[in-house]
Each structure stands twice: as C-alpha cells, then as structure tokens.
Design a protein around this nucleic acid. Structure first.
Length: 424
RNA sequence: GGAGAGGUGGCAGAGUGGUCGAAUGCGGCGGUCUUGAAAACCGUUGAGGGUUAAACCUCCCAGGGUUCGAAUCCCUGCCUCUCCGCCA
C-alpha cells in the first residue's frame, strides 16, 4: 500500500510515476472519494464530540441528583443521525481502502523503463557456460533415464505440475536445501525460522498477495486458510502489528518451505519438466531494515543469493527488472537467472526485491526511532536463496556427463552421504 | 471430541454502565543525590487521525447490538489457558 498522505497531497505525481509501470491510477475517482471522506469525517467527528459532551452532562446531572429528563429530550435524534453518518463514512473509507489495496508500488528511480521482460537490463554475468562435447539432455530426459524423476506417478497421485523424486535426487534436493540454509544462517547472519505453510487472509493481505491475486493461491476450505505461495508470507508477517526497538535491527530471517502456486495464468507454459510446478521447495531470505538502509540491503541480499550459485559453480546473470516487469509489491527487483544448457538460455532462479514500506504499511510493522521516540515503518527486502527445485534442474543439466550420469557439486559432498555421482 | 476459565497500555494487573484512554506495580526515559555506580526520591512514559499549535475524534481481541452514555451489558467469531478423552 502506498502512503495515503502521498495519495492525498501528490496524486498527480503518483499517477505519473505509476504510469511508468503501465498502471493507470483513477485519479478522478480517488480525489472525489477523498473529498467526501474529508467532509464526512469532519462532520462525523463534530457529531461525536457533541454526543460525548451531552452524555457527560447527563452523567454529571444525574450524579448531582438533578432531573435529567429535559437533557434526554434535547439529545433527541442525535444518536440516530450519528449512526447514519458513521456508516456513510465507513462506506467511503472502505471504498478508498479497496482502491488503495489494488494500487501497485512506485518503481524506484533506478528501475529501467520498459514494457516487459525483454526490456530488463543485464547488470552482470558470472561464470562461463560449459562447452559440451556430446549431445546434451534436458533434466527430464536425464532424470527419467536414471529413474530419479517420475512425472507419471506424480500425475497419478495428484495431477499435472507435480513430480516424484527418487533416491539420490530426492537426497540431492534435501542436501541442497540444507546447504542453502547453512550458508545463510552460518555465513550471512540470518536467523533460521520454521513457519506455518497455511496462513490466514490477513497475512496474505499484509504481504500483498490479497486481494488482487487470489486466483494464484490454493485455498483450504474448512478453515479458510491458504497454502503459502512463498515463505515471504509467513516470515514477513512475523512482524505484523509489531514495533521493534532500534537495537534489534536489522532483523534477518531465512526459512525453507514448500511453495504452492495454482499457476492459473500459465496454461501451456513450461509444461515440460519441473520448471513450473504447483509445489516446489524454496529457501527464502527476508530482511526488516531502516528505510535509509534498504537499498544497500537489497544489494547485499542479492549477493547472498549469488553466493549460493557461485559455490555451486552455476553460471548466472543478474537482471534489473524494468518498470513493466517488476511485481505488484516491489519498488525494485533483481532477478538471478541461471544458465540452463538444454534450453540454451538463462532462467529465473531467484528474485530479490525491495518493497520499501509497501508491505509494512499494510502490516503495521514498525521500529521505534530513538532520535524521535516515534514508531516508523520498516522497509522489507527479500529474495529467494534459492528456488531449490530449479537449482536441482540447473545442477542436473550443467553437471551431466556423456553417459547420462550427473556429478554432484563439491560443496554438496557433506550432505550426500558419500554419493559423488547420480548414475544407474 | 467433552467441561471450564479468560483476552485491558512494553510486561504484570485493577477496573463490571457516567469526569476511564484507563488505578497500581515493574520496565523505559529525564532529573536530584553521588568521585562514579547502586539504592532512594521527583518527574515523565500507548497508537492512529487532525491542527501552524491547540481544540477535537478513534482505538481496552475482532465484528455486530442495547443505551443519552460501553473497557464494563447482550450476540457472533477468533485466540489463549486448565482438566478429561484421543493422538503423530
């Protein structure tokens, strides 16, 4: 959510900045509602004030044993009028809020202008794609040949966009997850947390998935909960409705969770293999930070995700997403794209964003500034570190050998119980 | 699943229809005293809106209701705790 003050005072400027990302702000409706709100609120408060003073007078008179009947008569229909006006005000405020909840974040000045992913700007590249002297296979062919990847069985159990991992590959996924968590908690200073995978609507509203993106979620019917699309939701909501002290900052969490996405808008996209699944594993990093430090934190957090790719020796590039491609809640996003030889291209494996106060305003996540003594909104920065399923794909394809076997990256050796190669 | 208790400020905990946004204690902050510290004492200390500043308004889990007036009464929901049963 954007700052309501900003929407009141600099509506046209906000509209202009939002147009950079192709969003058209309904300035007319907003300013009309805002005028209504203002007058209604002032009138309502005046009536409330009158009610309060009259009620107090009655109380006082009664305490002194005076006859309160004439005072009661004076009050007349004030209560009813007030009730009506309060209702009107609430309606206007609800309308305003409903609009505000669907307005995306303002892109940071350093976000390049552009329409779609083709306009994203490459910031840097790391590693050399390996030259193969044999005909390479994609992860599906590799995995099925080794009997490690089983889409048919997953389809029988659940349907499309699921997979069953077998034996060494299942272990590799577990090892990868462990490796990522160990690196972030051990070397990057994050606190590991374990969180619920089912969350309520308030949490999803807090991080911005609701109300706009309900169709992307899996809903659980009996309790009205939702399966998390990312650990960002439960982890960020740890600080919802909380004021932390200055000496607790920055707060840095890492968590591993499965993620569940309906992929409603992705029919026919990435149908082969485990690139786009309804269920996948991800390790997430989340930072809560003072406003003045959030852009520096974004750079550092991005480097934490890069560290994982570097340790795994997987070539990648860093993209600065353009105004047309950044997510609804983000002010700036770097995507990390890993080299997939079978697709002969780079594919997204991590997304690192600064949300500024967009989420914390919805969540009321604040810190107390010791200089003013007042609570201020925190900024949130988060990123995948990394998407485990896609990392698995990248390892399979990049570490494949001529005989169809797959080497295990050296850093994962401690997690593999002596397995050095996945083979028949 | 059955039975009961309860949700109040950073924490603990009073308040059960009217000068209550809320006693008191602890904690925090400022000060006095002290060479310094502790102790003691004095003062101060919730959030949001609004205003140049004030006035003023809202918030005692959430949402409804009763009333001139609700933290306090009624209804619904959520959450927590205790006991019994079941159970990874």
């Amino acid at each position: 959510m954007l700052d309501p003050q900003l929407l009141r005072q600099q509506l046209d400027d906000v509209a202009k900045q939002l147009s950079r990302r192709g969003f058209q702000l309904e300035t007319k409706i907003l300013s009309e509602l805002e005028i209504q709100r203002k007058t209604l609120q002032a009138d309502t408060q005046n009536l409330q004030s009158e009610r309060n003073s009259r009620a107090k007078a009655i109380g006082k008179a009664k305490a002194q044993g005076e006859d309160i009947a004439p005072l009661l008569a004076e009050v007349g229909t004030l209560g009813d009028r007030l009730k009506k006006m309060e209702q009107q005000l609430a309606d206007v405020q609800t309308s305003l809020e409903n609009i505000q909840l669907t307005i995306p974040n303002i892109p940071h000045v350093s976000v390049p202008a552009g329409k779609d992913e083709n306009d994203n700007v490459e910031i840097r590249k790391w590693g050399e794609p390996r030259q193969f002297d044999f005909a390479i296979k994609d992860h599906v062919a590799l995995g099925e040949k080794l009997a490690l990847l089983d889409f048919a069985t997953a389809a029988k159990i659940s349907g499309a966009r699921f997979t069953v991992l077998n034996a060494g590959l299942a272990r590799l996924q577990r090892g990868l997850t462990q490796f990522m968590l160990d690196t972030h908690s051990g070397e990057h200073g994050y606190t590991e947390v374990y969180v619920p995978y089912l969350v309520n609507a308030d949490s999803l509203r807090g991080t911005g998935q609701l109300p706009k993106f309900e169709e992307d979620l899996f809903a659980e019917k009996t309790q009205g909960l939702y399966l998390i699309p990312t650990a960002e939701v439960p982890v960020t909501n740890i600080l919802r409705d909380t004021i932390v002290s200055d000496d607790q900052l920055p707060i840095k969490y890492t968590a591993h969770t499965p993620c569940f996405r309906s992929e409603a808008g992705a029919y026919g996209k990435d149908t082969r293999g485990m690139i786009r699944q309804h269920q996948f594993e991800k390790v997430e990093m989340v930072q809560f930070i003072r406003a003045s430090e959030s852009y520096a934190a974004l750079e550092i957090l991005t480097s934490h995700a890069e560290t994982i790719l570097q340790k795994l020796n997987l070539p990648y590039r860093v993209m600065n997403l353009c105004t047309g491609d950044i997510g609804f809640t983000a002010a700036k996003t770097y995507d990390l794209e890993v080299w997939l030889p079978a697709q002969n291209t780079y594919r997204e494996i991590s997304s690192c964003s600064n949300f500024e106060a967009f989420q914390t305003r919805r969540m009321l996540a604040r810190w107390r500034n010791p200089e003013t003594g007042k609570p201020e909104l925190l900024h949130t920065v988060n990123g995948s570190g990394l998407a485990v399923g896609r990392t698995l794909v990248a390892i399979m394809e990049n570490y494949q050998q001529a005989d169809g076997s797959i080497r295990i990256p050296e850093v994962l050796a401690p997690y593999m119980g002596g397995i050095e190669v996945l083979k028949k």
